[in-house]
Simulated assay, not measured.
Amino acid sequence: MRRLWHIFQTVLGLIFRHPLTGTSIISRLPDGRIVLVRRRDNGLWSIPGGLVDWGEDIPTAVRRELAEETGLELVKISRLVGVYSAPDRDPRLHSICVVVEAQVNGQMQVKDELEISEVQAFELTSLPDGKLSHDHNQQLQDYLNGLTTLA
C-alpha cells in the first residue's frame, strides 16, 4: 500500500508541480508587419501562441496556435528567439515558453473567439504602446534587438 501511495504522489507531482510548455510566435507577414492578437481575458495585445498539446512537438504547436488565433498559415519557422521560464512570466501558471519567429501568410481572422477578440498586423514603427500581456514586451524587445534569450 505504501508503494502505491508513493507512485500516486509521484504522478501528482509530475502533473501539478512541473511547468507547462508553450510557445509564442512572432509572426511576420510577407510585407514585414508583425501580427498581434488581443486577449479576451485581460484586453491586452499579445504575441500569438499557447500551450503545447500532448503528443505535439513545438513546430506542430506553432502551426496549430497560429491558425487558431490568427487564421494565418505557417510558411516557415525562421529562428529561435528564446526560451522564457521565469515562474512569474504568466500570471495564471508556471510555464516555459519557446518563442520563435515565423514567416506567415493568408487572411487574418480570429478562429478561437473564446480566447482572442482581435487580430491585427503592425508595422515595426507602430507597435502598440504600453504593456503587452504576460512577458511579451520582453520577448518582442529581445526579438527586435536580434537576441536569442534564455531567461
Rank of each mutant, 00 (worst) to 15 (best):
N137K: 14
L144F: 00
R28N: 01
L150M: 02
R92H: 12
I15W: 11
I116V: 10
E115H: 09
Q139N: 05
I58E: 09
K111M: 03
H134F: 07
K76H: 01
N42F: 06
S85F: 02
Q120E: 15
R28S: 14
V52Y: 11
L124R: 05
H6T: 11
L29Q: 15
S46E: 12
D112C: 08
R2V: 13
S27N: 11
H18C: 01
E123T: 07
A61N: 07
F122S: 14
Q103I: 05
S85E: 09
K131L: 08
T125E: 09
G32R: 04
F8R: 13
R33Y: 10
L20C: 04
R39P: 03
R40S: 06
P87N: 04
D53N: 14
S126H: 14
D129M: 01
F16H: 11
H18W: 11
T149Y: 08
I15K: 14
W5L: 12
P87R: 08
I34L: 07
E115I: 13
M108W: 00
V81K: 00
T23W: 06
I15T: 09
T70N: 09
D88V: 10
V62R: 01
S133Y: 10
W54A: 11
I58Q: 07
D57M: 00
A121S: 14
K131V: 13
L4V: 08
G146C: 01
T21F: 15
I96G: 11
L12R: 15
D90Q: 00
G49P: 08
L12E: 13
D135Y: 12
E113I: 05
S133H: 12
V110C: 02
R33W: 10
V99P: 00
M1W: 02
M108R: 13
G130S: 06
I96Y: 12
H134K: 03
V110W: 02
Q9T: 11
G43C: 03
A86E: 14
G130F: 01
R33Q: 15
G146A: 07
L29S: 04
R38V: 02
I7K: 02
V100Q: 12
T148L: 09
A151E: 14
P19M: 02
S117Y: 04
L150K: 01
R17E: 14
W54Y: 03
I47K: 08
G49Q: 04
E101T: 03
D129K: 12
A61R: 00
K111E: 03
A61M: 05
P19L: 14
L147N: 14
R79I: 09
P128V: 03
G22M: 06
M108Y: 04
P19Q: 12
G50Q: 13
R40Y: 04
I77W: 03
F8K: 06
L72A: 06
V100M: 08
V100I: 02
L132Q: 07
R3T: 10
G22A: 12
V99R: 04
S95H: 10
P128C: 01
E65M: 11
L14C: 09
T60E: 13
L14P: 00
F122C: 05
E65Q: 07
I7C: 05
E101F: 04
L4P: 00
E118N: 15
R79M: 06
R17H: 14
R33C: 10
